[in-house]
């Protein structure tokens, strides 16, 4: 899933998320979900979008959030993931405690 060269259709995202097509279109409208070519008639998405819409589906059904709140949460989750990645990168460069050797 990291290479992210495969594409998924809107229909596949509906199946993966439990959200309706209209709800996914709303997420695209809020910028939380980005089609590969927004102007195309049939949208396709990166395979990473599957993870995004699954999270969206969980937030919607488990926490009873409206889609705009979901899109705001997704933005926060993206930022947390980026920060965690940065933290791992910095931690990897820190020398291990001298006692550990």
């Amino acid at each position: 899933m990291n290479a992210d060269t495969t594409s998924v259709s809107l229909e596949e995202l509906v199946q993966a998320s439990g959200l309706s097509e209209a709800e996914l279109r709303d997420l695209v409208g809020y910028g939380a979900l980005v089609p590969r070519e927004p102007a195309a008639t049939h949208w396709t998405f990166s395979s990473h979008s599957t993870l995004t819409v699954r999270t969206a589906g969980r937030l919607r059904s488990d926490l009873d959030l409206d889609l705009y709140a979901v899109s705001v949460c997704l933005r926060y989750l993206d930022r947390i993931e980026a920060l965690e990645q940065q933290l791992r990168h910095l931690q990897a460069q820190l020398p291990a405690l001298s006692g550990a050797r």
């Binding site: 990645q85 931690q91 291990a96």
Partner: peptide, 13 residues
């Protein structure tokens, strides 16, 4: 080794 993405860091005393 400590991994950061695909890179591996190592202390070299």
């Amino acid at each position: 080794f400590r991994a950061s993405g695909h890179d591996l860091y190592l202390d070299l005393p």
